[in-house]
Write a protein that binds this DNA or RNA. Structure first.
Lengths: 253, 253
DNA sequence: CGAACACTTGACAGCCCTCAACGTGAGTGG
DNA sequence: CCACTCACGTTGAGGGCTGTCAAGTGTTCG
């Protein structure tokens, strides 16, 4: 199985794509440019960010973006595909920290430390925008909008990590996972009611702190109750209301 | 019961202490100055930070520093005492996000948003150093060391929130809590083996996602096994090794 | 076509929560 | 100084949710 552990985030590699040369169309799905535009960042500022980014990919399912202990040099925005971040404890059990969709940023939890504190792996075909952290931090000193955006991204992840930390039931956690995915996909222009899961049941289980068998049982129960339809990894949400109600306590809305 | 919900973080109040006028002795227990010195921040830079800080307190046990929904304006470093941050869900159950000791910073999870996403309350007599966030962010643009420190503090909290999110046993969680407190207190010059808990059993339970009865039972079992001695809120760690072993899986060391 | 893997389904047990009652210490007012 | 009150903490009994173990089914890929 090929991985990039010897070349995590290669500075230059055959996979680093050429710049597309259009600052205005620059990574419209990227977490940075969208927010920077919102912040009123001007065209020149976007150009500064533009010359900083390195497009990496495509990476294929199973390839690692970085591994725990790799020296930290860069954060990255997912441009396409899904990235799973996870830890393996001494007993060999995997703990999934999160699934990262296009527009979301990985590596933020590595800023405090010399090395990445977790692994990141592609679940399907992944494209990334890589930002050298020292460089983007320096740029952030000149661009208040960029600095503010970085602060917000970091702050958001603190809250996100706390959400699933509560002691919710298996049904609540599963509903929160599905509704959360649905909303994030919808925000990126995909159908909120019908989508493909890119991760295995075991990954969902390790993310929700459940046994894989429990994931199967909960999904079957939700299907038998007519709330959703699931076939392999294809999900259709049939009754949003009760699912939202289950998820509401977890997602706090 | 007096609280500051109408005046969360008062800009000027009778409780705001006068500046002590000594930049070199400025808040030696504070998370900022220590790290800033480490970063090689010079005396002039420290002075800039110095004029920005507002000393707030003392606050007494039960008084709130901010409440969920209060407009976000400032972060704060704990200078003395213990602060509990928590949420209350729709069923009235309290979820404790963390206990914050001197030198630790609260309010970082509010940066992404217009309001504080949680409550913060003093567990004993608390002194704070308050920093207007817009002002410290502006200053961070001029002081790379300060910007770096803010990034690190935010990043650290992401990792911290993920630690207790795992599906650990009650014993492991309790050991991790006690060892964690011990280490943090030791880093501040207190005894690592004998200390006072400033929070109620219920608070510990809501932090560890356990029932208060379970907290009692686990503590009693650990005491019966001779690993520690606990009398009311005074703890003495008798056998560190097995406690560290229990906590190791959670704390990842 | 066969093997490996992902997923499902069932039986059972264990951990921890819930409910209830009791004990204890601090603060208060007489 | 004492009785009272109340919040906090402890202890016990019982049950439910979910993990563990096991076996079976389906799918993908070499």
């Amino acid at each position: 199985m090929g991985d990039l552990s010897n070349l995590p985030f290669p500075r230059q590699s055959p996979r680093t794509l050429a710049d597309d040369g259009d600052a205005l169309k620059f990574c419209t799905t990227c977490a940075f440019s969208q927010a920077c535009l919102d912040e009123g960042m001007d065209k020149a500022a976007l150009m500064d960010l533009h010359v900083l980014v390195e497009h990496v990919g495509p990476l294929h399912a199973g390839e690692h973006i970085f591994r725990e202990g790799d020296p930290f040099e860069a954060i990255a925005a997912v441009r396409a595909g899904t990235v799973k971040t996870y830890l393996v404890d001494r007993d060999g059990h995997e703990h999934v920290l999160g699934f990262h969709l296009p527009g979301e940023v990985i590596g933020l939890n590595a800023i405090d430390g010399e090395t990445y504190p977790c692994n990141a792996v592609a679940l399907d075909t992944v494209m990334l925008c890589r930002f050298s952290f020292p460089k983007i931090a320096t740029l952030a000193s000149r661009l208040p909008g960029l600095q503010r955006q970085l602060f917000r991204l970091l702050s958001r992840d603190i809250g996100r990590a706390a959400l699933l930390a509560g002691d919710w039931s298996a049904d609540q956690r599963m509903a929160a996972f599905l509704i959360g995915m649905s909303r994030r996909l919808a925000a990126r222009g995909f159908s909120p009611d019908r989508f493909q899961l890119t991760m295995a049941r075991t990954d969902i289980a390790n993310y929700l702190r459940l046994a894989p068998e429990t994931v199967s049982r909960v999904l079957k129960r939700l299907q038998d109750d007519g709330l959703l339809r699931i076939d392999r990894r294809e999900v259709e949400l049939l009754e949003r209301k009760p699912l939202e109600a289950l998820a509401a306590a977890v997602l706090r809305d």
